[in-house]
Design a binder for these strands. Structure first.
Length: 495
RNA sequence: GGGGGCGUAGCUCAGUGGAUAGAGCAGCGGUUUUCUAAACCGUUGGUCGCAGGUUCGAGUCCUGCCUCCCCCGCCA
């Protein structure tokens, strides 16, 4: 039971995001953490499958930073592998000019890959030619290297646009190609320490004291001698430990990779222990699948993954229709800006508000519903708070605590109690990196505020009542906005 | 066969061993001369997949079973 005095003191103490951050900074105080996300593959357009790693990863990294961690967001792109042989083969057989301007170069590359892939399936000659292109690339052939670099540039440029649109933070981009020359050391050290062994021509790790992984191999070098996901991931752990001095590494990927990361973590533990390397905390923050109405992973009618850009366009268009309907008097430019913010925010929030370990059903109506536990509801609540201060001609940054009288009404107390509950929310959201706890809190906060807003008028004659209600509005606004920003949603002042 | 996840109101989902299991949507009924009605208030709706067990107390922990989704040697 929190007394009125305690609540008043709490509200007087934590006035804005900076003060909350200073207090929250104790949680992770200076801890060096690498967050691995969203890590897409190059030469492909982003699709609906990239939504979750982007929004969950970004929310997690922002929460960590807010709580005092020293974070590096490392975008571990898939820019190396067997598929480049087929792609280069496709580019060459079609005489495609990568320098030629195109409305959607990534879409062109996808088509070329499909073409090359189809040909390689049809004829052994084509399959061989594709393999040769790969070997040439791997051996540093000038022409193929130039093509590969251009493909990477085109991909990165397209990704940058998406990151900007989605407010995704990238500190470094060290993809799989970066670790090309770093895998030899992995083979050597894992063999030396007796962890890796030859099996069916491949180099594999069997974790002998593990019920399952004693028989299920962790393949770290393929039988053709090439590296794979496991090799580069091992090299990456080492690099992050040695170069970044990472104390914790967080991988944000889908649930299907759980076995991979368990094997990676267990192997790393044994390997680092044998070599005396400092072992960072290794965490796999995994998430479920976005399902279609049929209960299967979402696809378009033709069976293709839904483009992320198409999803965003649709969200913004739907937001626009609502803005036009609700605020017809607003200037065109402002309606456009609000639609963009609301549409993207709705898309992100629909994902973040779900417990990440479950699958969830995608439905346009639900994803873009502006009722209930959604971004528009929260944004609207914040906009109304701003409106109060605008109408009153007072800044929300003023300190109202001196003039504020004791909290009185049921709604005032409910709001104050909810505000003071914030620290527990951080604890919960961070314990297992589940941003939906923060979403639930913000939704409840906005709901209690709305009830308060309806029941207790803020701009009243009594100066003590007015001051304490303005104080409540100011604190609610600052916490709501800070919370939205942690979810990478930029609040609006009007809508 | 082994492993992971899911199963809670008509639908979509929350739920930290603790009180009479919650929200949104849908349904029904209200609220506006008053700071933005994208709001608020009230109300209908539950064998928490099934069966045992532990506990003063289980949606939550343990065991077994069932449905569905996913993973399990050269993709990432």
């Amino acid at each position: 039971k929190l007394t009125k005095t305690f609540l008043k003191e709490w509200l007087s103490k934590y006035k804005n995001a900076d003060e909350l951050k200073a207090a929250a900074g104790e949680f992770y105080k200076g801890k060096k953490i690498v967050v691995d996300f969203p890590s897409p593959n190059t030469a492909k357009q982003m699709h609906v499958g990239h939504l979750r790693p982007m929004v969950i990863g970004e929310a997690v990294q922002r929460l960590l930073r807010f709580c005092g961690a020293d974070v590096i967001c490392d975008n571990h792109i898939g820019d190396w592998g067997t598929n480049f042989g087929i792609l280069i083969y496709g580019i060459k057989t079609e005489n495609y000019d990568l320098e030629k301007p195109s409305a959607n170069p990534l879409e062109d590359l996808e088509k070329l890959y499909k073409l090359g892939s189809a040909k390689a399936k049809e004829s052994p000659e084509a399959a061989n030619a594709a393999r040769e292109e790969l070997v040439k690339l791997q051996n540093g052939d000038a022409q193929n290297t130039a093509l590969w670099e251009k493909i990477t540039d085109i991909s990165k440029e397209a990704f940058e646009k998406m990151y900007k649109l989605m407010s995704v933070t990238i500190d470094v981009t060290l993809g799989e190609s970066f670790y090309r020359d770093k895998v030899e050391r992995i083979y050597k050290e894992l063999t030396e320490t007796g962890l890796a062994e030859e099996s069916l021509g491949a180099l594999v790790v069997f974790l002998k004291d593990h019920d399952r992984f004693k028989d299920q191999p962790f393949i770290i070098r393929k039988s053709d001698g090439a590296s794979n996901y496991a090799s580069t991931d091992l090299a990456t752990v080492l690099y992050r430990t040695e170069h970044f001095k990472a104390q914790e590494i967080i991988y944000v990927t889908d649930a299907r990779q759980q076995d991979h990361f368990q094997q990676l973590f267990l192997t790393t533990q044994k390997w680092f222990a044998a070599k005396g390397y400092p072992l960072p905390d290794l965490r796999h923050v995994w998430f479920g699948t976005i399902l279609g109405e049929d209960g299967k992973a979402i696809k378009t009618k033709s069976g293709e993954p839904v483009r992320l850009s198409a999803l965003i366009d649709e969200a913004v268009a739907r937001a626009r229709r609502i803005v036009d309907e609700k605020s017809p008097d607003m200037p065109e430019a402002e309606r456009e800006k609000i639609s963009k913010v609301v549409g993207v925010a709705a898309l992100k929030y629909a994902d973040l508000s779900q417990n990440r370990t479950g699958d969830y059903t995608f439905a346009w109506d639900k994803l873009l519903a502006f009722d209930g536990n959604t971004a528009p509801y929260l944004l609207y609540a914040a906009a109304r708070m701003h409106s109060i201060f605008r109408k009153a001609g007072i800044s929300p940054d003023e300190d109202f605590s001196e003039a504020a009288g004791e909290l009185e009404t049921e709604q005032e107390l409910a709001l104050a109690r909810k505000l003071a509950a914030l620290p527990a929310v951080f604890e919960m959201a961070l314990a297992e990196f589940r941003p939906h706890y923060l979403c639930t809190y913000l939704f409840e906060l906005a709901g209690i505020f709305s009830a308060f807003y309806n029941a207790d008028k803020v701009i009243v004659d009594d100066p003590a009542v007015k001051a304490r209600r303005l104080m409540l509005c100011s604190r609610t606004l600052r916490i709501l906005e800070a919370g939205l920003r942690l979810l990478a949603i930029e609040p609006l002042e009007k809508m």
